[in-house]
Simulated scan of single mutants.
Amino acid sequence: MHSTQPSLPRRALTGAFLSLAAAALVGCASAPAGLAKPNADTSPDALLKRAQAYWDLVKANDNLGAWAYEAQSKDPRWSLEGYLKKGGITYSHIKVLGVKSVEGSAGVVDIEMTYSAPLQRIKDQQVRTDDQWELIDGIWYHSLRRSGMFLR
């Protein structure tokens, strides 16, 4: 009796081929960090829209929604749980004033805000500051300012 199933070596080769093809497709679909995908919008307007959406979520205290805009969300060393534990700062006013610069995969947005940190007994502090953004896989992500005091 003749079997309609492929022989074991043929099935193994077919499986290996499908695995390689899937790996090649995945490799083609993801660009290295910092490089834009061909259809990505890396313009200052795209950065401005992302920054406004991010700060709207922060002001609304929607940390779960804001996480999707954080560069940390793309770093396996960070977790959503850790991000949600940060906090203690509330914002009563946030205004995205405009894009100051875009150079390669780095962007800077000019913002003004009024914030409070009740645990530190800081209330209604007004500040105008540079907000750092970075381009990851063709999308702008909010980037924490690095400080010597707070190393990753």
Rank of each mutant, 00 (worst) to 15 (best):
M1G: 13
M1W: 15
S3L: 10
L8F: 15
R10H: 14
R11T: 14
A12S: 11
L13K: 10
L13Q: 10
L13H: 10
T14Q: 12
L20K: 08
A21Y: 06
A22V: 09
A22T: 11
A23H: 08
A23V: 15
A24G: 09
L25E: 06
V26T: 07
A33G: 14
A36P: 05
A36G: 09
K37A: 12
K37I: 13
P38L: 06
N39G: 12
A40R: 00
T42C: 03
S43D: 08
P44G: 03
D45P: 09
A46C: 07
L47T: 00
L47Q: 02
L47S: 00
K49N: 06
A51E: 04
A53M: 07
W55Y: 09
V58R: 00
K59N: 04
N63Q: 14
N63D: 09
N63V: 14
L64R: 15
A66W: 03
A66H: 03
W67I: 03
W67L: 02
A68W: 10
A68Q: 03
Y69E: 00
K74G: 08
K74I: 05
S79D: 01
L84E: 06
K86P: 07
G88W: 04
I89G: 01
Y91E: 01
S92I: 12
I94D: 00
G98E: 06
V99Q: 02
V99A: 03
V102E: 02
V102D: 00
G104A: 05
S105F: 13
A106M: 15
A106K: 15
V109I: 04
V109Y: 04
D110L: 01
I111R: 01
I111G: 00
M113P: 01
T114L: 11
T114V: 14
Y115I: 08
Y115T: 04
S116M: 06
S116L: 10
A117C: 14
P118L: 07
P118R: 01
I122G: 09
D124V: 06
D124M: 05
Q126W: 15
V127L: 15
V127Q: 14
R128G: 03
R128T: 02
D131R: 02
W133V: 03
E134W: 15
E134C: 12
I136A: 04
D137E: 15
Y141E: 00
Y141R: 02
L144N: 08
L144Y: 14
L144G: 05
L144W: 14
R146W: 13
R146I: 12
R146S: 10
G148V: 13
M149G: 11
M149Y: 15
L151E: 09
R152A: 10
